[in-house]
Simulated scan of single mutants.
Amino acid sequence: MGITKLADLIRSAAPDALSYKDISDYTGQVIALDTSIVVNQFRAMTPKLSPVRGVFFRTLTFLEHDIKPVFVFDGKPPWEKRAALKKRAEAAGRNSFNCTGAASSQTKDCLQLLKLLGVPVIQAPGDAEALCAQLVKEGTVDAVASEDMDTLPFGANVLIRQLNAKRDSEVTEYSLPKLLEKLDIEHEEFVDLCILLGCDYCDKIAGLGPKNALTLIQKHRTIENVVLHINREKHPVPHSWKYKEARKIFLEAPETGAPELIWTEPDEEALVKFLRDFKFLKEDRVRHRLEKFHQMRESKREEREKERAAGHSRQTHMEDFFRVTRKRGKPVETADSLNNNTKRPKSK
């Protein structure tokens, strides 16, 4: 998943592009989340339980920190990704994989949960990380939260990893502008570097390590020129290599309109009924967590108010949190359109 050994390369070649933060540093920010990454994390951690439980707890943690989450769901994957998806399905012991983008029953459960939690949901036309990156580039959101490093070649200026509910968890933030400056390459050249490292959309040149790939791109600037200057016997180029198709996927923005993002207070009674009736969580545990959510949110707001009074500026007012954010153009598909398979009408 993502770009092979890119995180290691950044740590060694461009450490200034990294910063380490706390979840509270993102108070008041709009964060796009690659939902499949969140769901898969909970599948791996608690394989016998529905990931709906984990999404419930994590979303409340974001909200009590006054983070504005936007959950982005995958659409139909690019044809070029089928080989990678098939390989992952086989590794997980599954006989098939989703190549249509149709919402599974588990996806629909997550959509219903997020709707009751009062957070916006967006359906991407293709890979969610591509749309997440586009939302950052156009200024609709402040950052992308994902463990998938290919969010960077898609053009996300700010990528956040390890943004989770664990206490004292250190969040890692990647700055794409700082990364490109430190590596002394343009974004298009960075995309070629990521293809050389190994991505989901095509094969890679065998035996070409990260440091060598970076040196070659810094010197020759394009894959076409790199191929002319490597030892083809030592590093054979894949037959019918689809690197141009992969490059196009990374560089072409998803064809969607800008979304209308609205956050509302969680519908507590509906949440209790939904989680209880589908046996995701017992009623007393849901009510206890919601009570804790309200207490924690108010406590954190009081702390920020004291900081503001003492001369600090981090402050989020309730009326600023629950509001429409960045209305621009027509909306992309949202939770209702995912369930009904119809697009929302253009906003006027």
Score class of each variant (00 low, 15 high):
Tyr201Val: 02
Ala206Pro: 00
Ser313Gly: 08
Gly118Thr: 02
Asp22His: 14
Val227Trp: 01
Lys108Pro: 00
Ala206Arg: 14
Glu303Asn: 05
Leu183Met: 11
Pro125Thr: 11
Ala156Arg: 09
Gln41Gly: 00
Pro254Tyr: 07
Pro120Asp: 08
Thr325Trp: 12
Arg161Asp: 02
Lys81Glu: 01
Asp203Cys: 10
Phe73Thr: 07
Glu302Ser: 12
Pro78Asn: 05
Arg11Asp: 10
Ser169Glu: 15
Glu298Val: 03
Phe321Glu: 07
Ala124Ser: 15
Asp109Val: 09
Pro238Leu: 07
Ile160Met: 08
Ser24Pro: 00
Val141Asp: 01
Leu228Phe: 06
Met296Ser: 12
Asp34Leu: 07
Lys68Ile: 00
Leu85Thr: 03
Leu113His: 08
Thr256Val: 15
Pro47Met: 11
Leu9Arg: 01
Cys110His: 05
Glu302Ile: 06
Met45Ser: 13
Asn341Ala: 14
Arg326Tyr: 10
Ala213Met: 07
Arg247Phe: 14
Ala246Glu: 04
His220Gln: 13
Asp184Asn: 15
Glu173Met: 14
Gln315Trp: 15
Val171Leu: 10
Ile31His: 00
His312Ala: 12
Gln123Asn: 12
Gly329His: 04
Pro259Cys: 11
Leu197Glu: 02
Ile37Leu: 05
Asp148Arg: 04
Arg297Trp: 08
Pro78Ser: 09
Thr172Cys: 13
Cys110Lys: 04
Asp142Gln: 04
Val332Gly: 12
Lys244Leu: 15
Asn95Thr: 13
Leu179His: 04
Gly198Pro: 05
Ser313Glu: 12
Leu208Asn: 07
Thr59Pro: 02
Phe278Thr: 15
Pro345Ser: 14
Ile3Lys: 08
Leu281Gln: 04
Lys244Pro: 00
Val119Cys: 08
Gly257Lys: 03
Gln123Lys: 14
Glu90Thr: 10
Lys279Asp: 13
Lys282Gly: 13
Arg301Gly: 12
Glu80Lys: 09
Asp200Asn: 07
Ile217Phe: 05
Ala44Cys: 09
Pro69Ser: 12
Thr256Ile: 14
Val227Tyr: 01
Arg344Ile: 03
Ser337Gln: 13
Lys242Arg: 15
Lys248Gly: 01
Thr334Asp: 10
Pro69Leu: 11
Lys306Asn: 10
Cys99Gly: 04
Ile217His: 03
Lys327Gln: 12
Ile31Pro: 00
Pro236Trp: 10
Ser96Thr: 14
Thr35Cys: 13
Ala14Glu: 04
Thr256Phe: 05
Glu260Gly: 09
Glu245Met: 07
Gly329Ala: 10
Pro51Glu: 02
Thr316Ile: 13
Thr172Val: 15
Ser50Met: 08
Lys81Arg: 11
Pro78Met: 03
Ile195Cys: 10
Trp263Phe: 01
Trp79Gln: 11
Tyr20Leu: 13
Asn341Val: 06
Ile217Ala: 00
Arg11Gln: 14
